[in-house]
Amino acid sequence: MESKEKIIFTRPESLTDRITHYCPGCTHGVIHRLVAEALDNLGVREKALGVAPVGCSVLAYNYFNCDFLEAPHGRAPALATGFKRLRPDMIVFTYQGDGDLASIGMSEIIHSANRGEKFTTIFVNNAVYGMTGGQMAPTTLEGQITTTCPQGRNVAQTGQPIRMVELLAALVTPAYLERVAVHTPQHIIKAKRAIQKAFKYQMEARCFTLIEVLSTCPTNWGKTPEEAINWLEDDLIPYYPLGCKKDPESLERDDGAV
């Protein structure tokens, strides 16, 4: 019996075939794939609309096979709001970094979440401004060295790193908020489930959904891809515990780590 070769893992249709501009080992690429897999699995590529931020993923529209808008820095949630309100039948998602969402775009994300806008936000947290060369971000850890806090972040002067999911969870409006990570296959598999669940909630017009994805930045962390993986595990996760912080199903918060 001649058994046919079967492909069991390949590029999702929602992802273009382009070589990305991301640095070697940068897990933006993984997150792109997870979003694309979700669009494929839910069969919504042809009615999807992505909103790209300003930051490393400003060129995200080159890597997805769906319509895209490019937002001014931090304003993606506002663009998504405007679009989704006029086209509730389409699946709208913003893809934003920590500088874009937690710094200049803080007002937009908080108010979109509070209005319960029915789009999905993929929030990539790598604790640094990537595209502009490694400056301190609102999510930079205490003592973490960046190009604008070369002696390590001094929280006495710049405040503590911001936990976005917990901050948004404090809003009364229902939402699905979960923090995941993509530094190991095991975490990637869990991240995929969370991202897909977020898009599912959007298809059901259930609530605002945001997935915070802890991601590596080898170049600006000054580490090899593997060292970056370890640093994420050893330093980022303790400060940014993984898990679902808010879910319209249960509404009671699960603070346990993965």
Partner: peptide, 15 residues
């Protein structure tokens, strides 16, 4: 931007 059904994606941008 009406959804990339039966056409290439439309990208509305200024970069």
């Amino acid at each position: 931007a009406t959804g990339a059904r039966g056409r290439d994606p439309i990208i509305i941008k200024s970069l």
